[in-house]
């Protein structure tokens, strides 16, 4: 049923003038933009404030102790001797052990999920890795400190027995004695590193898996069509494409490993000896130092602890920034636009 209405015909008289489109927000939008900017400024003030606060707090400590703060190994506030050399070395040692364990496992797990797993189990494996990332660090620390320590010390003794000629695997005891001294192999950077590896692994694995999954399907198929085996395809296409993700994911994990506190505090027995012997009892990290010493501190010691925290923060910041740059470069640039 159609009716023609004469009066609805276009009048054809008024010249079309473009609707004014203001560049700045008007009406409700002005409120929205202003509000969003205010929230952003608040968050900037909070987060940036922490960084500034740490930097300002570090000034008196650095003025007082100078460069010796970085070379002194002892932390004896009563003797006015403060330094972070040994805890920095301990931090790096724990992180290195964690990465040495976590990197190969993360790489193989990521490769398995993206290349080998049957399509039916793949989503389950992905959520398994995500779940592993969500397990609180206190639980890893509890398990390794109470349950798994004897096994870890057994592995440490094995490494010492057969690879003890390498300086890294030195322990100051006799591994082949009839009654071997288990206490020399416990509470070490090695055990702490194993616990931290459990936390680093899922982070690194998730980043690697995402990058592997983005490897272009055309190039994969080309490699397979040219007769390569699955490993040949992975070596020629997936790994070169995902190199950035492998490096970036590992570095993100390293950032987490450096800052990990609770698992390390529960496992290691504090020692301020400057040594790179991960298998031997006793080590210390910056975060463990803070957790152990904050309660008994005066104002100046708090400032020193904050300085140690700042050094740790700067270390992780540099590593995370590098990781972000590396990961961002490896992205293919495929957009998500409609």
């Amino acid at each position: 049923m159609t009716t023609l209405r004469e009066d609805l015909e276009p009048q054809a008289a008024a010249p079309a003038t473009p609707r004014p489109v203001p560049r700045s927000a008007t009406g409700v939008d002005r409120l929205f933009v202003g509000g969003a900017r205010a929230v952003g400024a608040t968050v900037l003030a909070i987060t940036g404030g922490i960084g500034l606060f740490l930097a300002v707090q570090a000034v008196p400590t650095l003025q007082r102790y100078g460069l010796a703060f970085f070379t002194e190994t002892q932390w004896q506030p009563e003797a006015d001797v403060l330094g972070i050399a040994s805890v920095l070395v301990g931090t790096v040692t724990v992180a290195a052990v964690a990465l040495a364990v976590a990197f190969p496992l993360a790489l193989t797990t990521a490769l398995y999920i993206s290349e080998y797993a049957p399509a039916r189990v793949r989503p389950g494996l992905v959520s398994m890795v995500d779940l592993m990332a969500a397990v609180p660090s206190i639980i890893h620390g509890l398990l390794w400190a109470v349950l798994l320590q004897p096994y870890a010390s057994g592995i440490a003794r094995w490494l010492h027995t057969y690879l003890g000629f390498l300086p890294v695997f030195q322990v100051d005891t006799d591994p082949t004695a009839a009654m071997w001294e288990q206490s020399r192999y416990t509470a070490s950077a090695f055990v702490a590193g194993l616990a931290v590896a459990m936390m680093v692994l899922p982070m690194a694995c998730a980043v690697m898996r995402e990058v592997f999954a983005q490897a272009p399907a055309g190039e994969r198929e080309a490699a397979l069509a040219l007769g390569s085996t699955r490993w040949g395809m992975i070596r020629a296409v997936v790994l070169p494409f995902g190199r950035g993700g492998v490096i970036g994911g590992t570095m993100l994990g390293l950032g987490r490993a450096l800052g990990e506190t609770i698992a390390v505090v529960l496992i290691v027995s504090p020692s301020f000896e400057l040594k790179v012997r991960p298998l031997e009892v006793g080590t210390n990290t910056v975060s463990a130092l803070i957790a152990n010493r904050f309660g008994e501190s005066s104002a100046s010691q708090l400032s020193a602890l904050l300085t140690a925290g700042l050094v740790l923060f700067l270390l992780t910041l540099v590593i995370n920034t590098l990781a972000a740059v590396v990961v961002a470069r490896s992205r293919s640039g495929a957009g998500t636009d409609l």
Partner: peptide, 9 residues
């Protein structure tokens, strides 16, 4: 940058 802040700090 602040996501790198260790929780203990």
């Amino acid at each position: 940058a602040m996501t790198a802040l260790p929780s203990i700090v």
